[in-house]
């Protein structure tokens, strides 16, 4: 049977995979994909709670999270392109003029 817990476990797993991806992957594009995964796990949690509690506020927040995610992806990819034009790479390890 599919209960609230199943949804929460799934979204927690998605969130952890996403967060791990941001921290360990070195390709900027994959990092942005992982961030999308994190934000979508947030959406899943919100929708699941919202349906379970019978309160639509959570679903309203989901719309805003989706908008924010789209805006963030647009800005992020624009920055990646600007950087790629200069350095011909999207590898985060090679983007390291600035450190400690």
């Amino acid at each position: 049977m599919v209960t609230l817990t199943s949804y929460l476990i799934l979204s927690a797993a998605m969130f952890i995979i996403g967060a791990t991806g941001v921290l360990v992957r070195r390709n900027a594009i994959i990092v942005f994909m992982s961030i999308e995964l994190m934000l979508n796990s947030v959406n899943l949690t919100l929708v699941a709670f919202s349906a379970f509690l019978g309160d639509s506020t959570g679903q309203a927040l989901v719309f805003f999270v989706m908008t924010v995610a789209a805006a963030e992806a647009a800005v992020g990819l624009a920055i990646v392109i600007a950087l790629f034009r200069r350095k011909q790479t999207v590898n985060l390890d090679e983007i390291n003029i600035l450190k400690w």
């Binding site: 967060a19 994190m38 699941a48 919202s50 959570g58 992020g76």
Partner: peptide, 19 residues
Amino acid sequence: IYGALSSGLMLYGISILFG
């Protein structure tokens, strides 16, 4: 990258608090 990561963490916290 750091900004999106921490706003993702914060949103997940908000979704738990909402639940």
